[in-house]
């Protein structure tokens, strides 16, 4: 052992102790020590910027050709934060699956990705009230809309194959409607799912009407059609695909302020104005609350 070893260790201990004393003595350093997450909103106002986490999924939240963050969720978030006195924003791109871990780790202040509010997600983060409700639809090849009208057709006809996206809620919906696993194809991307339908790999792709409408608009002339949108019902419970904004679990104060402004936008009809360019319609507007969507239907 070197003669310097002990003094150095003692020095580190002392420095660590001093650091710990500083941190505990100065409450603003430790976020979780404050009730209701401290005043993140005040801090955002001071900084003038909010960090927006998104997953680059059109039309929910994406970077457009000019390199600007846009989409349904970021545009609504920008408007709400502007009203809350936070004019600027910093886009934070993330994998969809990494949005929740990223928010919890403090990489951004809000998730604006049109994320569906589900009980499992509510156990990890808190949500604003939903700003839209997305009925599901099935993308089929042109001319098949007479043959394929609903998920029941997939459950009945054992020649039909249904495509869903990897990790998306639609896999459970398909299973709940009795579409067997061996006739359910899991595509890793939305583009892959659409190519799969075109190539005859799958006879339908189950996704929200919004996503599918947007996909069709980017593939003008492709021989594809949409079925009538519907709200799936599992075990007698309507499965709302309602999306909202995610906040860290301790940020109830910020979330409540956000909700209040969002409610104003809904009442005035300004919300629909903001989201209409992204393919949202009157049918997607909703009065559901996060509390209701977070309640576990099984409980």
């Amino acid at each position: 052992m070197s003669p310097h070893h002990l003094p150095r260790r003692r020095f580190l201990l002392a420095a660590g102790g001093l650091g710990a004393a500083l941190v505990t003595g100065c409450g603003t350093v430790d976020l979780s020590a404050e009730r209701d997450g401290g005043n993140l909103l005040d801090r955002l106002r001071t900084v003038g910027e909010v960090r927006i986490g998104f997953a680059n999924e059109a039309p929910y939240g994406y970077v457009d050709r000019e390199g600007r963050l846009t989409g349904e969720a970021p545009e609504v978030a920008k408007e709400v934060f502007r009203r809350l006195g936070v004019p600027g924003f910093v886009p934070a791109l993330s994998d969809f699956g990494s949005l929740i871990p990223g928010l919890r780790a403090g990489l951004f202040d809000v998730i604006a990705a049109g994320m569906f509010i589900t009980p499992a997600r509510c156990a990890q983060i808190i949500f604003s009230d939903p700003d839209y409700n997305a009925p599901e639809a099935i993308l089929v090849r042109a001319g098949d809309t007479t043959r394929i009208r609903s998920l029941d057709d997939f459950a009945r006809d054992d020649r039909l194959k249904l495509g869903v996206l990897l990790g998306a809620v639609e896999a459970d919906v398909a299973a709940g409607y009795g579409v067997p696993a061996n006739r359910t194809l899991t595509f890793s991307t939305q583009a892959g799912g659409i190519d799969g339908v075109l190539a005859g790999r799958a006879d339908g792709l189950l996704l929200t009407a919004i996503s599918l409408r947007h996909a069709l608009s980017t593939r003008q002339g492709a021989p594809l059609e949409l079925t009538e949108p519907f709200v799936p019902v599992l075990d007698g419970v309507e499965q709302y695909g309602a999306g909202g904004f995610g906040f860290r679990p301790d940020q109830t104060r910020l979330r409540d302020a956000f909700n209040a402004e969002l409610a104003v936008l809904k009442r005035s009809g300004r919300l629909l104005e903001i989201v209409r360019p992204f393919g949202f319609t009157e049918a997607e507007m909703t009065d559901l609350t996060a509390a209701r969507l977070c309640a576990d239907p099984a409980a």
Binding site: F96, G97, S98, A120, R121, L166, G167, A168
Partner: peptide, 13 residues
């Protein structure tokens, strides 16, 4: 793919 599918449900990556 199983990791991604299960992870999307429980976030236990």
């Amino acid at each position: 793919s199983v990791v991604k599918a299960v992870g999307a449900q429980n976030f236990r990556y």
